[in-house]
Computed example of a mutant assay.
Amino acid sequence: MGLPTYTVQQLALRNGQDRDEIWVAYQGNIYDVTKSRLWRDGKHYEHWAGQDLTQELADAPHTEKVFDKFEVIGVLG
């Protein structure tokens, strides 16, 4: 059985403000970053949770390997 699919609107609600969950998407996968101290309150530097960060990663000082430490909890559909 595959991972659940979430809409952009469902992802947007997991922004650390509207609900307790803090999620971000990257390349179609949704990651739970709730436990990361770097995403406290749904913000990580100039990036906001509840969004697809695929385009924004090019400006980040790290590679996509940063997502390896987080659990994929769904796919963006």
Rank of each mutant, 00 (worst) to 15 (best):
Met1Val: 15
Met1Trp: 08
Met1Leu: 09
Met1Glu: 09
Gly2Glu: 13
Gly2Cys: 01
Gly2Ser: 15
Gly2Asp: 13
Gly2Thr: 15
Leu3Tyr: 15
Leu3Gly: 05
Leu3Ile: 11
Leu3Cys: 04
Pro4Asp: 07
Pro4Trp: 11
Thr5Lys: 12
Thr5Ile: 14
Thr5Gly: 01
Tyr6Pro: 11
Tyr6Thr: 12
Tyr6Leu: 14
Tyr6Asn: 02
Tyr6Arg: 07
Thr7Met: 00
Thr7His: 07
Val8Thr: 11
Val8Gln: 13
Val8Met: 07
Gln9Phe: 07
Gln9Ser: 14
Gln9Trp: 01
Gln10Met: 08
Gln10His: 07
Leu11Ile: 10
Leu11Tyr: 09
Leu11Arg: 14
Ala12Cys: 03
Ala12Arg: 15
Arg14Glu: 00
Gly16Ser: 08
Gly16Asp: 10
Gln17Leu: 01
Asp18Phe: 06
Arg19Ala: 10
Asp20Lys: 13
Glu21Val: 09
Glu21Cys: 04
Ile22His: 02
Ile22Asn: 02
Ile22Ala: 02
Ile22Phe: 07
Ile22Tyr: 04
Trp23Lys: 09
Ala25Phe: 08
Ala25Gln: 01
Ala25Arg: 08
Tyr26Ile: 09
Tyr26Ala: 01
Tyr26Pro: 00
Gly28Pro: 00
Asn29Phe: 11
Asn29Cys: 13
Asn29Gln: 14
Ile30Phe: 05
Ile30Trp: 02
Ile30Glu: 00
Tyr31Val: 10
Tyr31Met: 04
Asp32Ala: 05
Asp32Lys: 07
Asp32Asn: 15
Val33Tyr: 09
Val33Phe: 12
Val33Trp: 12
Val33Gly: 05
Thr34Tyr: 04
Lys35Asn: 14
Lys35Met: 07
Arg37Ser: 11
Arg37Cys: 02
Arg37Ile: 10
Leu38Pro: 05
Trp39Lys: 06
Asp41Pro: 01
Gly42Tyr: 07
His44Trp: 13
His44Pro: 01
His44Cys: 02
His44Phe: 13
Tyr45Phe: 15
His47Met: 06
Trp48Leu: 14
Trp48Phe: 15
Trp48Lys: 13
Trp48Val: 05
Ala49Thr: 12
Ala49Gln: 08
Gly50Met: 03
Gly50Gln: 09
Gly50Ile: 02
Gln51Met: 09
Gln51Val: 02
Asp52Lys: 11
Asp52Cys: 08
Leu53Met: 10
Thr54Asp: 04
Gln55Ile: 09
Glu56Thr: 14
Glu56Gly: 06
Glu56Asp: 14
Glu56Arg: 10
Leu57Thr: 13
Leu57Tyr: 05
Ala58Ile: 13
Ala58Met: 00
Asp59His: 15
Ala60Thr: 11
His62Lys: 08
His62Ser: 06
Thr63Lys: 10
Glu64Ala: 15
Glu64Phe: 11
Lys65Tyr: 03
Lys65Gln: 08
Lys65Val: 01
Val66His: 09
Val66Leu: 11
Asp68Glu: 15
Asp68Thr: 14
Asp68Phe: 10
Asp68His: 14
Asp68Gln: 12
Lys69Thr: 10
Phe70Thr: 06
Glu71Pro: 13
Val72Gln: 04
Val72Leu: 01
Gly74Cys: 06
Gly74Arg: 02
Gly74Leu: 04
Leu76Cys: 09
Leu76Phe: 09
Gly77Gln: 12
Gly77Tyr: 01
Gly77Cys: 01
